[in-house]
Measured scan of single mutants.
Amino acid sequence: MDVFMKGLSKAKEGVVAAAEKTKQGVAEAAGKTKEGVLYVGSKTKEGVVHGVATVAEKTKEQVTNVGGAVVTGVTAVAQKTVEGAGSIAAATGFVKKDQLGKNEEGAPQEGILEDMPVDPDNEAYEMPSEEGYQDYEPEA
């Protein structure tokens, strides 16, 4: 019985440690998101679009440190934060509304985080759909 109880105690310690790591990862992701939003706020009209992409990228980098179902929630929060940063930029006159959601080359930025393969159960990952990809044929 002692062996059984000791095993359960060790398992509990492992769960607590994993929860603490997840909590730490979420806190880091939130900190990076805040950094990115402050970065966007300090940019001029020309830099705002690039700044919004930076927020998304920093958040995406930190999301990889967070495991399990938390990833889905962090990704949703990050996307809403990026959308909010863009709205703030438009409201303050840093950028025109028609410039939001495009990178410096004018290509749409939507789907940055949505296409990231995420499995809350950590069982399997699927690649994003290939609808947006084109076949590449090298020139002879």
Rank of each mutant, 00 (worst) to 15 (best):
K23D: 00
D2P: 02
V52H: 01
E139C: 02
K43D: 00
Q99M: 14
G14S: 10
I112R: 09
Q99V: 14
E61P: 02
A78E: 01
K97R: 12
F4V: 02
A140T: 06
T81C: 09
A11F: 09
P108L: 07
V95K: 10
T44Y: 11
N122D: 10
E20R: 05
E105D: 07
K80I: 07
A85M: 13
G41D: 00
G7W: 15
K102D: 04
K23N: 01
V70F: 03
T92Y: 04
K21P: 00
E126I: 12
K34N: 01
P120T: 09
S42A: 14
F94L: 09
Y133R: 02
K45I: 14
K32C: 02
A17N: 07
A89G: 04
G132V: 08
I112E: 06
E123L: 06
V16G: 02
Q79A: 07
P108S: 05
G25D: 02
K10C: 03
E28M: 14
T75H: 13
D121P: 06
D119I: 02
G41I: 08
A56E: 01
M1C: 00
G25S: 13
V3D: 01
K80A: 11
L113Q: 08
I88T: 03
E20W: 14
K32A: 14
T44S: 06
E20G: 04
G132Y: 09
M1Q: 00
V66R: 04
F4Q: 00
E131A: 11
A69H: 09
V70Q: 01
K97Y: 03
G41S: 08
T81S: 07
S42E: 09
V118N: 14
A76C: 12
T54S: 15
D119T: 11
A89M: 06
A27F: 11
G86W: 13
K12Q: 04
A56S: 11
P108R: 08
V77W: 14
K96V: 11
M5P: 00
S9Y: 14
A29M: 07
A30S: 02
E110D: 07
A85P: 04
A124P: 04
A89W: 11
Y39L: 12
T92G: 09
E13I: 05
V71P: 01
T44L: 12
K45M: 07
D121Y: 12
D135G: 13
K12S: 04
K21S: 07
S129P: 11
K45N: 01
V82S: 05
N122A: 05
A27T: 03
P138K: 06
L113I: 07
Y133D: 13
L38K: 07
F4D: 01
P117D: 08
K23L: 05
E137K: 03
A78K: 05
D121G: 13
S9W: 14
Q134T: 03
K45D: 00
E104K: 05
V77K: 03
F4C: 02
A89R: 13
E137H: 12
V52A: 05
S87T: 06
K80M: 09
S42H: 11
G67R: 10
E13V: 05
E110H: 04
I112A: 02
A29V: 11
P128G: 05
E46L: 05
M1D: 00
A27V: 12
E110F: 11
K102W: 15
A69M: 03
G67C: 15
E105F: 13
I88S: 02
E130N: 12
V16D: 01
T59I: 03
E20Y: 14
T64C: 13
F4G: 00
G51P: 01
V77P: 02
D98Y: 03
I112T: 11
D115F: 04
L113Y: 11
A56G: 09
